[in-house]
Structure formats: C-alpha cells, structure tokens
Design a protein around this nucleic acid. Structure first.
Lengths: 246, 246
DNA sequence: AGAGACTATGGCACTCAGTACCCTCTGTAA
DNA sequence: TTACAGAGGGTACTGAGTGCCATAGTCTCT
C-alpha cells in the first residue's frame, strides 16, 4: 500500500511536477482513499523520500554497534549507508535529485532529513568525545564536515546521471575530512592509538547485514546473513557487491 | 507596517504558540488586512525571522569586499555578522530560540535560512579555491564547518539565556575550525603564506561599517562611519563594542 | 458458530495557509 | 480636471492536513 502510493506519487510528480499534483490526484491513481495517503505519509513531501526513515533507523543501529576506537571512521561508514541507499536505485535517485532541485518545498524537506542524519552522527561522536570541554563542539563540527563531504560526492554522482560508482568520490571526500579531523584525536583525554586507514571502503558493515565471499577461487561460496526486516535494497546492493563483477 | 506585523505575530506566538496562532489573529491584533500580511511575509514562518534577509544581503556584501588573501578568515568573519545580529537583541533572540526549538515547522524553516548562509560562504570559498580539483569540495566542507562552529557557540549563548558575550564562545569554536582547515591551505595551488592569527576577533569589519577608537588614553575619540541603510542593530552593536566597558 | 476486540481503510467535514483577482484610497504629474 | 501609480483591503478559491466516525476483515475466546 505504502509502495503503491509512493510509486503513484512519484510518477505524477515527474509528469506534472510536484506542486501541480494534488494528493487527490495521487490517491486517484493509486486507487485508494485520500485519508489513507496521510496514514502512510505525514505530508506530501514524505512520499518523495519514502526510504529515509528506515535508513535513519539503520544508521542508528549501525552506530550503536560500531567500533569504539575510531569514532570518526564510524560516522564516515555510517554516512556510507546513506550513499548505498541512493546507489541501490540510480535512476530513481537521479530523477528525485532533479525533482528536488527544482521544487523549493522539497529542498527544504530534504534539509530537515539531512539534519537528522547529521544529528545522529553528532550524537554518536558526542557520546565518544564526552560532553565536557570541546567534545560537543568537535562532535558537531565533524558531523557537519562528514555530511558535507558525503553530500558533495553524492551530488557529483547524481549530477553525472548516476553513472559509475559513487563510492570513489565519497571515499575521497571523506578522506579529506579524516585528514583534517581524524588525526588530532589525541587532543581528547584518552589519546587513541593511531587508527588504521582501513575504514576507507568497508564492503561488510558490522550490522545489520553481512555478505562475505568464502574464497578467492572460482567456485567461491557467498555466505549471506541478514536480519529479518532488512530493507530489500540493502540486500540487493550487498549481494551485488559480493557477487558482482569484482 | 512590516514592523507592526512582526511584533504582533511574535507576541501572539509567545502567548499562544506558533501553531495555535492563525494569520487572522495576527492581522487582527496588528489592525490591518489579512492580505497585507502576505505582502510583507511570504509565509507565517517568515514573520519569526524578519531580519535574516537583510543579514544575508549584508553578508554577501561583506564577502564581496573581503580580503583576498585569507578566505577562511573572511568566511569566519562573515559568520560573525550573523552572530552580532543575534547579539544585538538578546532577549528577542532567546525567546525566538525557545520558540523555534519547540515548533518543528520553525526548525525546518530555520534550516533553510542557515543553508542559505552556508551556501553564501561556500560560494565565496569556491571562488577563491577554484572549481577544479578539490576546490568545490573543500569549499563546501569548510563552509559547513564554519556554520556548525558558529551555531555551536551561538546556541551555547542562547541556552544560557543571553548572558555574557557570545563572541568568546564563537571565537573559540571558529579557532578550532581554522586550526583544522586554515593551515593546510598549502594543498592548494598557491601555497598561501602563513596567515596571521589576527582574524580571531576583529572588532572592525571592512564593510559596511566601521568604528574605531582614536587612542588609548582617557579622552579618546570615537570615529564612526556608517553607510546609509546600515541596520540599526549593527550601529548599536558596533558603538557598544567601541565605547563599552572595555 | 457467534460475540467481542482490534486493525486497516474509506468518507466527510472542517481549519487554515496561501493565492488570484478586483476594489478603494491617496498622492502626483500633465 | 484626468491619468496614473502604488499601497492597502476584501472576497472567494485551492489544497494540505486533521478529527471523527463508519465499515469491513481478521483474530480470539467461549
């Protein structure tokens, strides 16, 4: 039902534009009652971003189980969760990007979504840096940097029409942030040991999902572990990462 | 007229809350027609932030005339323009802050305002760093950092109820950003010479306003130069800075 | 089977923000 | 005087979002 509504809405937004599509139009095409629309989407804008709520929950879960020793790496990896959601549906993401750029109301709505990601990241960093001293300040500035870097790489890919792999641009952008903020973690109380550069492009996040290739030979085995309720796009994306051309 | 409407609106928002105040209530208290409200404020939310439009214009003007050699310092100083707008009316700013925290619609609106500041700063940095290479990326990340740092200091002051001087917290926050991003400007093509730490707390911005104490003795002379149309709060703020207890 | 409860959906009426269109009033120039 | 422009006001409309209630399907307990 939610899916039906979201698709009907998105089709109409592409055909007539966002503002010249009424909720009545949407429910007419979806063949449901008007009241039902607002049961699934608190506002018309929400129908354009039907997956962010779930992605946010996933990010929260990921951070809760993240490695303690490298908070900046953890939030960078958390940001990549969002990237993969976009990358899982290139044509949809690109169309939505174009739509969002043209409709002020959608731009504003997207800002509020991004803000929630940013606050989630900042909350995690704060809990690691400590509230006292510059902990909260560093947390917020680093979270903002990570989000800005992520969005820069993501936009680059979206503007290119969804060609190629967005991860490379985002990895590069996040590396720049890490270079600026990752090192002087020594300014915190517990001088963390030098963090390995490893977290650059982790194919296998800790939770809630894992795919691993079981060998380097030809007939390799792929073991897949997914929680119930894991969003389908993540499943697909991860399988592609493990099985795909690489 | 604009002023009358803004005041009536703000009073009502404090009395009854934002959402339980209708535009009809506002125009009734202001004693004007409903249609006139929307002539001065494109939306109900705009009445809560009546001065940002002007402040944004001022920031743009400031950056256009800013020193070429130190773009990060320039955007930091530009951010301080916003801070001073808040600091010029402590009790209004604090009340508005509390209101904004409680009303989701206002939070979202504020995000869009902040975003415009951020884009203005990023645009300036981009024009200095160059679009090619990592210029745009660095511009956006640094702008986001500056905005986050500014907002952190500003919020600290707002949460304290508007006591004391917000500049110290913001100066400290911006110094942290500068430490992270200001130095490795050498990674750009033109390795800029080490920038003096001077821009930490410039009392006298280049434009559109200047106040200078004429000596260190007792009977010192204050020379004030202001353009026509300079907002009154800036005049007051700058005079205070020059004449005040210091 | 049947009563009761719970959930999903639809329908209706209402509030209110925002807009389009047209009106009046006032001051100014010819 | 007429012509005109610009500020403000009034009216009616669209459309998002909400509250309330009715209906239908399902599950459970007896």
């Amino acid at each position: 039902m939610r899916e039906v509504l979201a698709q009907a809405a998105f089709q109409l937004f592409l055909e007539r534009g966002f503002e010249r599509t009424t909720v009545d139009d949407i429910v007419a095409r979806a063949g449901v009652g008007r009241r039902s629309f607002f049961r699934y989407f608190p506002s018309k804008e929400d129908a354009v971003f039907p997956d962010h709520e779930r992605c946010l929950a996933e990010m929260t879960e990921f951070l809760a189980a993240a490695d303690e020793s490298d908070p900046v790496g953890a939030v960078s990896d958390a940001a990549r969760i969002v990237l993969r959601m976009y990358a899982a549906n290139p044509e949809f993401s690109v169309q939505r990007y174009r739509l969002t750029r043209e409709v002020p109301g959608l731009r504003t709505y997207e800002l509020s979504v991004v803000r929630r990601y940013e606050q989630t990241l900042a909350g995690h960093l704060r809990s690691r840096f400590g509230e006292g001293g510059d902990g909260a300040l560093r947390a917020e500035v680093i979270a903002a940097s990570v989000v800005a870097a992520h969005n820069n790489g993501l936009r680059l890919w979206l503007r290119s029409g969804g060609e190629g792999d967005p991860e490379v641009a985002v990895d590069h952008a996040l590396a720049l942030v890490r270079e600026a903020w990752g090192r002087p973690a020594a300014s915190t109380a517990s001088a963390a040991p030098a963090v390995p550069e490893a977290s650059a492009a982790p194919v296998v996040p800790a939770v809630p999902f894992a795919v691993s290739g079981g060998g380097d030979g030809d007939g390799e085995v792929v073991v897949m572990v997914a929680r119930k309720g894991t969003p389908m796009w993540r499943v697909v994306q991860q399988i592609e990462a493990a099985v795909g051309e690489n």
